[in-house]
Structures are given as structure tokens and as C-alpha cells.
Amino acid sequence: MSLEAKSLTFRYRRRGQSPVLEGVNLTLEPGERVGLSAPSGRGKTTLCKLLAGYERPVQGTVLLDGRPLEQYKGACPVQMIWQHPETVLDPLLPLGVSLNEAGAVEERLLEELHIQPGWLTRYPQELSGGELQRFCIARALGPATRYLLCDEITAMLDLITQTQIWDFLLREAQRRNLGLLIVSHSAPLLERVCTRIQSLSPIP
């Protein structure tokens, strides 16, 4: 029972250039926290988008418990948290609406993420990136979620917010036996939070 990427290849249609990803294999088990490190421009974000079903690979498949990911209807069990929270929150909706748009989020999550009740009626442009990222995380932790893909989720945040968020995510992952894929440029951070670190290179 795991999230598997089997020889994923991806290229953008327009540029007839070399693929962004080629023959990438990756397995993520429940309860595992896999760190992914690679130099910039090697398609780490693209891999997350493939694993969460935002993009379809040119070749290869993403399997969840042995079944192709696109067969899962409704809320996707693999959720991605984006690097820039302000792009994934509708600027015209109060944050409380965005937060609960796929079903009410547990009160406990809001408390543990230090989301103040007063923020729920505010709009995204009124809060800072760190505050918005808390909403994105709470929203991604719906009941169906079993894997979280964290794409540089704290790269733009200050250190204290970063520790708060990771402190929470590690506890929550343990409690619900979530599988985490963690993308970061910061080697010390990966060492702190991951159970294993994989570098992004095709297995020959």
C-alpha cells in the first residue's frame, strides 16, 4: 500500500526540447517522510504536480495502492502544498470560505496551526505568506488525504513560522500515518524532518 511513480517522463508540449523528467521512479510508504533534493531546474515541482495529478506524464504511471491515481474520484488522496500560498487562494474569497470549501476543517487543526479566528473573515492580500500557508496546510489535510507533497512550502517564510509549520506537520503525519514527500533546497531542514533522502535522478 503505497504511492508509486513508475518511470515517469514529462515534457512540455510547446518546446520540442529535452524532457523535464525522464524515467523517474519513486515510492512513498505511509508514515514515511522522504526528502527530495536536486539542483534547481531539475523538475522537482513538476514531479510533485505529476504525483498529485495536476499534470499527466508523457510516459509512466502514478499508482496509489496499485491503482492509477486518475481513477480516484472526489477529493484526491494525494495533496500538494504549493510554494507560494498566495497563488492557490482565490483573492476574492474570504479565507474562511477558501479554507472550508471542500468540507469543514477540524477546529483542532486551526488551533494547532495558530490560525486566529479573526483571519477567517480576511482576504488573502491582507495576510502574510506565512499566515496564508497555514490555511493551505489545514485545507490540504481533509479526511481523504493520505499523502502530502510539500514543495518548498517554507522556503519563503521566516524561520519561526518554518519551525512552527514543521513541528505541526510532523506531529500530524505521525498521528494519521501520512506519507510525506518533502522538497527543499535546505539540507539541514531535510536532515531534521525526513526519514530518508532521495536525490532526483533516473535509476538506470
Binding site: 495558530h114 486566529q116 491582507e126 495576510l127 502574510s128 506565512g130 499566515e131 524561520l159 519561526i160 513560522t161 518554518q162 519551525t163 512552527q164 514543521w166 513541528d167 535546505s186 539541514p188 531542514l189 536532515e191 531534521r192 524532518v193
Partner: peptide, 16 residues
Amino acid sequence: ALPQNGFTPIPGTQPY
């Protein structure tokens, strides 16, 4: 709070 220095969070958030 640096990952290599203890990674200790303090509670709360900055006022805006």
C-alpha cells in the same frame, strides 16, 4: 529556529 540550531518553535504570529 534554524534547523541546525535546535529547530525550536515559539508560539504565536507576528501582528500585521
